[in-house]
């Protein structure tokens, strides 16, 4: 069986997930993820034509709440947990690129 995913795939996925991998990790993860994906080929043993996907175990619908204001939490408590804050706001290093 051919490798289900390449080192480039793993490298791309790491980038999407905001993770940095060393060369050694890249090799190791490629092998480990490959093994798992090879095992996952058994999913194709069932004929799944026409089978609907299940995203939730139970079919609850229309779970809603009333549009009523509840007290917010103390901003000081929130900002106290922030790695960096300034002027009542969360501070981050410069942003490169606009939101998609």
């Amino acid at each position: 069986m051919t490798e289900p995913l390449s080192r480039e795939d793993v490298s791309h996925v790491a980038k999407l997930a905001r993770l940095r991998l060393t060369e050694e990790e890249l090799v190791r993860y490629t092998e480990q993820l490959g093994k798992i994906l090879v095992h996952a080929q058994d999913l194709n043993s069932l004929d799944l034509a026409g089978v609907a996907p299940t995203a939730h175990p139970f079919g609850l619908v229309n779970v809603v709440r009333q549009d009523e204001v509840h007290p917010s939490i103390d901003p000081a408590a929130v900002l106290a947990e922030a790695p960096d804050a300034e002027d009542g706001r969360f501070a981050v290093p410069r942003i490169v690129g606009e939101a998609p």
Binding site: R20, E81, P83, F90, R94, I95, V96
Partner: peptide, 21 residues
Amino acid sequence: VRFGNRIDGDDVTAMMEATRT
């Protein structure tokens, strides 16, 4: 950004990567 630990970086993406890594 909002809670937990941060490892700094030159820009926000580098910070997020360093933090998560």
